[in-house]
Computed example of a mutant assay.
Amino acid sequence: MTTTSPATAPERLARPLDLLVCSPEHFTVSYEINPWMDTTAPVDAGRALAQWEELCAAFERLGHRVRVLPGVPGLPDMVYAANGALVTARGSVGVRFAHPERAGEAEAYARWLEEHGLGPVHRPVHVNEGEGDLLVVGEHLLAGHGFRTELAAHREVERVLGRPVTSLRLVDPRFYHLDTALTVLDEDPAHPDVAYFPGAFDEASRRVLEELFPHALRTGEETAEVLGMNAVSDGRHVVLSPRAQRYADQLAERGYVPVPVDLSELLRGGGGAKCCTLVLRQ
């Protein structure tokens, strides 16, 4: 694994983020569409809400703006706001979900974005699941496929936003979205930085990542299997699962500041800090 010693770690600079989250008052696990979901394990709704509120509080303590979209009855996965869109300075792209259980979320997010001056929102033809599979890193737009987002959607996003998209194929069903296997640590074009779990990608995609980010932090399965990669970074602080202790240590060695937030109840649906957070870029 690639590491940087504390003595040589660069100074990390935080940038303020504009974040959209969705309240989990309707969160439950009533169906199974990923390996993390188990309908036989009851969800503690009060605990899920308390953990989500702590996530919001952590973002606010770090100086970020947190905007809340109310959940919609019958859409229990709407709490995973990252899947609601991709919002960039070049435009906003809505989503089309792979599973019918989540289809109703797409228009709810698109309408909110347009009502708050972040539109018009492109309604996609091909399946894409927002920032779950579409991640901005400097001048790069990394796009996952293999389980949810269709490869054809990458070309659609490329046309809509007028920027090149780099496709990465996911091969482990536990990591069905790109944001479960790769953390954008710094999206500043001057010094883009990522961490990723190589085992989630096919060989060709690993070669692409090695070429684009030769100094990237490569994590082990002990981090990935607790969804440790599903983290939110402002360029200095990294909000992540407290179960990903090895990852936290690696980040600290590189000059990042780990901020652990327990989202174990929301993990029952297959999401962590990043899944619950959509970045609004303008």
Rank of each mutant, 00 (worst) to 15 (best):
T3C: 13
T4G: 12
T8D: 14
T8Y: 14
P10V: 15
D18N: 15
S23V: 02
P24M: 08
S30L: 12
Y31L: 10
E32G: 14
E32Y: 12
I33G: 07
I33Y: 09
N34H: 09
N34M: 04
P35Y: 06
D38R: 13
D38F: 08
D38Q: 12
A41W: 06
A45Q: 11
A48S: 13
L49W: 14
W52H: 06
F59C: 04
E60C: 08
R65F: 10
R65P: 05
R67Q: 15
R67G: 06
L69V: 12
P70E: 10
P70Y: 06
P70M: 09
G71S: 07
V72S: 10
P73D: 14
L75Y: 08
L75W: 02
P76D: 09
V79R: 01
A81N: 09
A81D: 06
A82V: 00
G84T: 00
G84L: 03
G84M: 05
L86A: 10
T88I: 06
A89L: 15
S92C: 14
V93K: 04
V93F: 02
G94V: 03
V95I: 04
V95N: 02
R96D: 13
F97T: 02
H99R: 15
P100A: 13
P100S: 14
E101D: 13
E101R: 12
G104I: 04
G104P: 04
G104W: 06
A106N: 06
R111W: 08
E114D: 07
E115F: 09
E115N: 14
E115D: 15
H116P: 08
H116G: 08
L118N: 06
P120Q: 11
P124C: 14
V125P: 08
V125N: 13
V127Y: 06
G130Y: 00
E131R: 07
L135G: 00
L135P: 00
V136E: 05
G138N: 11
E139T: 10
H140A: 11
L142C: 02
G144T: 01
G146L: 04
F147N: 03
L151D: 11
R159G: 09
V160K: 05
R163T: 12
P164V: 10
S167C: 10
R169H: 15
D172W: 03
D172Q: 14
P173F: 04
Y176I: 11
Y176H: 03
T183N: 09
V184A: 00
D186V: 01
E187G: 03
E187W: 03
P189C: 10
A190D: 11
P192A: 08
V194M: 05
V194F: 03
P198W: 02
G199F: 07
A204T: 11
A204H: 13
S205I: 02
V208S: 15
E211G: 13
G220V: 03
E221F: 10
A224M: 04
L227P: 00
G235V: 02
R236P: 01
R236L: 02
V238Q: 12
L240P: 01
P242S: 15
A244M: 07
L251Q: 14
L251S: 13
A252S: 14
A252D: 04
A252R: 09
E253T: 09
R254I: 01
V257G: 06
V259T: 08
E265T: 05
L266A: 00
R268C: 03
G269N: 05
G270Y: 00
G270H: 02
G272E: 02
A273K: 02
C275A: 06
C276H: 01
C276K: 01
L278A: 05
V279T: 07
Q282P: 09
Q282M: 15
